[in-house]
């Protein structure tokens, strides 16, 4: 669907530790694809640009995003109260490809990167695809009761850096032993080092079964300004706009070496 530009009202804010889910009304016809994002104005204090947030939930008349405080803009957004107005542009970008030969999907999330994968998981299950969500975080209390809530709707495995919950280690330590792509499709979103580790584990043969949602600083969100450049493999040296040609890219599309250098 073409993007919509709309002002809406915050219906509910659900706080989960370091993050909050913001639920707001959406206009008729709003139909986001998993992996697409919403570009939200975070006004004030000299901030100019919108901030991109993946769609976390959608149920017809409302949608939600998961906001983790990483700077002034997200901090402002997290302080919004029910009834406050939001200025939203979206849905934007290319989302996940839901089709694939493999019948089992591994959803691999680092931190707040869980957001697009939760919505993706819902859509995959509706299509009869078996999906498991692997989620890594710093400590077991970081996202409050969100793991409990998500555990009710999807097969969830947790890893924590401090070992306070789930497996001690990173999210990659949770993946089936020796899995190098065969038989699974991989969907991932999280910090750049996590994506790099995952890609090198799957490379070269498994990259074709990997899709990642990348996080980039963005300006227009529409592909016009070319500010959110992501290095791609073909043609060599080229970039694609994360906001339009992404934020979801196939594992084989990206130039992982240049991504590593710029990290």
């Amino acid at each position: 669907m073409p993007p919509l530009l709309f002002k809406t009202t915050l219906l509910e804010r659900r706080d989960y530790g370091c993050a909050s889910e913001l639920v707001f009304r959406v206009p008729p016809g709003f139909q986001p694809h998993p992996g697409q994002f919403l570009h939200i104005l975070c006004d004030g204090e000299g901030r100019l640009l919108r901030r991109p947030f993946s769609v976390f939930g959608h149920n017809g008349r409302s949608a939600s995003v998961l906001v983790r405080e990483v700077g002034g803009g997200s901090a402002w957004l997290r302080r919004r109260m029910p009834g406050d107005e939001l200025d939203v542009l979206g849905p934007l970008g290319r989302g996940f490809d839901l089709d694939g030969e493999e019948e089992e999907a591994l959803l691999i999330a680092g931190g707040a990167g869980v957001a697009p994968l939760v919505y993706l998981g819902q859509r995959l299950r509706e299509r009869g695809v078996r999906a498991t969500l692997f989620w890594g975080m710093e400590s077991g209390k970081e996202y409050g009761t969100l793991p409990e809530r998500l555990g009710e709707e999807i097969d969830l495995r947790l890893a924590t850096t401090d070992g306070s919950r789930g497996k001690r280690g990173t999210v990659l330590d949770l993946l089936p032993c020796g899995s190098s792509g065969a038989g699974f499709r991989y969907y991932a979103c999280g910090p750049r080092p996590m994506l790099l580790s995952l890609a090198s584990r799957l490379a070269p043969g498994g990259l074709s079964s990997l899709q990642v949602s990348v996080e980039e600083r963005m300006a227009c969100g529409l592909g016009a300004c070319r500010g959110c450049a992501v290095p791609v493999a073909d043609p060599p040296g080229a970039y694609r706009a994360a906001c339009r040609e992404g934020p979801v890219f196939g594992g084989e599309e990206l130039d992982w070496e240049r991504l590593r250098v710029s990290t």
Partner: peptide, 17 residues
């Protein structure tokens, strides 16, 4: 092809590109 990323940075009341 353009410059290597990051290509954007927001400052107070401004934007670097």
């Amino acid at each position: 092809a353009g410059n290597p990323p990051p290509r954007l940075w927001e400052t107070r009341w401004g934007m670097l590109n």
